[in-house]
Simulated scan of single mutants.
Amino acid sequence: MFLKDRQRRNIDYLQTLKGVVALLRDPGQTDSVYDVEEGLRNIKAVQLSVDFVKSKPEVAAIIEERYLAPEPDMEALLKLPEESLGYAYASYLKEAGFDPNFYRKLEVVDDASYMFLRIRQSHDIWHIVTGMNTDVIGELGLKAFELAQTRRPMSLVLLTGGLMRTLLSSPEDLDLLLDRIAVGYRMGAKAKPFLAQKWEENWEKPLAEWQAELGVEPTPVYVP
């Protein structure tokens, strides 16, 4: 048993290291993000993250329910009022050329795997509601938001890697990156839990109403 546990930890470590190295080379490698998260799945910090989010009753309820949304009907969402979350989401994905089902699927076997999958499924919605850009700096701002909301270990790993890469390859961007991280973390600490929301059952609700209800003041758009 000890040898099996040690072997599993070694495999997880190598998978995490491989993902981190790939991300340092190319932060746009989404598969590397998933490699990092899945390599970290057995560390104690993941269970502490689950305990943290479940300390909020509304999050604990959705985790127990294992709520996952069906695939969105993009054409139907584009017919909603322009001020709605659904229209904002569909038009954003269409303009960016993103696939709403881009994320890597995984089997839900426990609370942690459910949390991973639900955050992956709603990632682009989080971008829209927070106003964080989808470039590298905006993604890291959203990771700071996620860290405040969930204590998700992967968020901290990506923030650390992003800071290192910026310091070494584009130090002129460091001030902007630190600003986005600070803004994202403060926003996440103040906002009501995003993980508790069934966004997809209320696509027609105005985006501004979502933001007001959740205590979110969206970050101003910046020019990288």
Score class of each variant (00 low, 15 high):
Q47S: 14
Y222P: 00
D124I: 02
Q197I: 03
F52R: 06
P70K: 11
A90F: 02
S84R: 07
L93S: 09
A148E: 10
D73T: 00
Q149K: 01
I62S: 12
D110A: 07
E95A: 05
G161Y: 01
I43T: 13
E37F: 14
L48A: 04
D173G: 00
G161C: 04
A22K: 14
V129L: 07
K190F: 05
P27L: 05
P72Q: 04
A144W: 11
E107Y: 00
F102A: 13
V223F: 08
N101S: 14
I181C: 11
A69Q: 10
G131S: 06
V20P: 00
G131E: 05
F98V: 01
E65N: 08
A22C: 10
D124Q: 05
A148H: 10
L40F: 13
E172N: 06
A88H: 10
W203G: 09
F52E: 10
D26G: 08
L48K: 15
G184E: 06
D51V: 01
N42W: 08
V221Q: 15
L77C: 08
K79A: 15
S155W: 07
K198W: 07
P72T: 04
E213G: 01
E200V: 00
G28D: 12
L156G: 13
E213M: 08
A90L: 11
F102N: 12
E64D: 15
I63L: 10
R41N: 12
P27C: 02
G28Q: 14
E38T: 12
F2V: 02
I63P: 05
V109S: 08
V108E: 01
R151E: 03
G19Y: 10
E64P: 00
L176D: 06
E146G: 10
E83I: 04
E217Y: 01
I125E: 06
V21F: 15
S49V: 14
L24A: 12
V50I: 13
P224T: 03
F194S: 03
L195K: 03
D26F: 04
L147H: 13
D111T: 05
G19C: 11
L23D: 00
P218T: 09
A196L: 01
A212M: 14
Y103V: 05
V20F: 07
I63K: 11
P193N: 07
F116P: 02
R25K: 15
Q7E: 12
K94R: 11
L177G: 03
D26I: 03
V216F: 04
R8T: 12
Q211K: 11
E71Q: 13
D124T: 00
F116D: 10
K105W: 12
M1Q: 03
D99E: 07
F102W: 11
L195S: 06
W126A: 07
D99T: 07
T134R: 09
E201V: 04
E38I: 13
T166S: 08
Y13H: 15
I128A: 05
E200I: 00
E204L: 05
Q197L: 06
A96V: 02
T16E: 08
L106K: 11
P220E: 12
D12N: 15
Q149N: 08
I119R: 15
G162N: 00
A196M: 02
